[in-house]
Design a binder for these strands. Structure first.
Lengths: 110, 110
DNA sequence: TTCTAGTAGTTACTTTTTGTAAGCTAATGA
DNA sequence: TCATTAGCTTACAAAAAGTAACTACTAGAA
């Protein structure tokens, strides 16, 4: 059926999953804790947990546990994740150039 | 709640909608007809139709009607759409560097 | 040893979105 | 009138997302 580059398809499958873009955007800024991301992003704990697990499984995000009191867990980008920086930055540039300030809270309709 | 750049959020909302990446990838190659995309991509007519309408509404895709026999309708990228080329090309590069040939048909699991 | 506070999730449940298949519309020219 | 091209609509099934309450772990206090 599809004759597209399968690696591209797989990459899109990961990156275009809902919330993944915003999670990567957060992490490009530096290590983040679960609760920090939960309050910065409009995403529920359940989905944040799902996405972080998926990204960890894909080798894009690292999960670091610090056995302090209370326990601290930080998420960071792996080398593979960090190398997505140009993608996110290009999207940011595109958005700045082409998305009008009046349409930022439009719902994307069919 | 969210303190992210709202333009970035909006851009991600468009780009990360399922199939949009693959549709843009197709159109970067040149004008395409509906049935051509339908057979090149693993997407059903209903969703292809939905996505093309959404992309047209967002000013990313142009719909050109040629009153020949039989009628021919071609989809092309607008200037706004064409300027997404770097994003798609970066994803392609990233995929070539980081997605192993053995994982291309993995399902993205939670 | 039980209590409480502070993370970091998980579970059970509901709602929304997506996907599929089949049939429908409209225009044209043989 | 019939086949062709291009796409739309409907009805239904499957998957994903949203919500709110709940659990697990640790450590110091009572």
């Amino acid at each position: 059926m599809s004759e597209l580059c399968p690696r591209f398809e797989k990459a899109m499958q990961i990156i275009s999953k809902r919330w993944v873009g915003l999670i990567l955007f957060e992490l490009l800024d530096g290590p983040k804790r679960f609760s920090e991301m939960e309050s910065n992003l409009p995403v529920s704990g359940r989905l944040l947990s799902d996405r972080l697990k998926m990204l960890e499984k894909e080798g894009i995000v690292d999960r670091n546990i610090y056995s302090e009191f209370p326990v601290r867990i930080e998420y960071t980008l792996s080398k593979k994740g960090e190398s997505l920086r140009p993608v996110i930055e290009d999207i940011q540039s595109w958005a700045n150039e082409w998305i009008g300030s009046d349409e930022v809270d439009d719902v994307v309709e069919k």
